[in-house]
């Protein structure tokens, strides 16, 4: 069931679009913004776009930043592309894995973090980098990562 707020935001988004279906990715993101992911029951959401759940899911499952599985409260997107790789991405990833107790694609047991790889974040001059939710963190070091995780854990972010 869509909430009143979601429904309103979706309708606004659709009204802005040249054609209903063109809003599909945006609409998925509206739901994702509030729930962290796009739940399996797509019927109602699809209907707002005059689509079937199959048609909408075909789109949803294509895009890497539409999550079709539950994620933690914060999503860590760590860049694994070439410049970051050269600049020690692997140690950063290992450090994150160890700190969070999860591998790529996993969610920490406290439900705080989900760790995902992401394609080049376009901040190669400041590699290695990662994004947590909407915020970019650059020139990562293991100490810096600890500080960032700590800040999110304490709810400072």
């Amino acid at each position: 069931m869509l909430t009143e707020g979601e429904r309103r935001e979706i309708e606004e988004e659709i009204a802005k679009s040249e054609r209903k279906r063109a809003a599909s990715v945006e609409v998925l993101k509206i739901v994702q913004k509030r729930r962290g992911w796009v739940p399996d029951d797509l019927d109602e959401l699809a209907a707002t776009l005059d689509m079937t759940p199959d048609e909408l899911d075909a789109v949803a499952t294509f895009y890497s930043l539409v999550f079709r599985k539950p994620v933690g409260r914060h999503v860590i997107l760590i860049c694994d592309s070439v410049s970051c790789w050269v600049m020690e991405y692997e140690s950063m990833r290992e450090h994150l894995s160890e700190r969070l107790g999860i591998g790529m694609g996993g969610t920490s047991t406290d439900g705080m973090f989900t760790l995902l790889p992401v394609a080049c974040l376009g901040a190669c001059d400041r590699a290695p980098v990662m994004m947590v939710d909407e915020v970019l963190y650059t020139n990562l070091t293991t100490e810096k990562i600890d500080g960032i995780l700590e800040a999110y854990r304490r709810g400072n972010m």
Binding site: K16, S17, R19, R21, A22, A23, S24, V25, E26, L28, K29, L49, A58, V59, F62, Y63, S64, L65, V66, V118, A119
Partner: peptide, 27 residues
């Protein structure tokens, strides 16, 4: 002029895939 925010996938940068993405389809 409208701003469209994508949702990942490098192939969206390929100009014709980009058009499909703008149409709300698989890119």
């Amino acid at each position: 002029l409208r701003l469209h925010l994508s949702a990942g996938r490098y192939i969206c940068g390929e100009e014709t895939a980009l058009l499909n993405a703008l149409e709300g389809k698989r890119a």
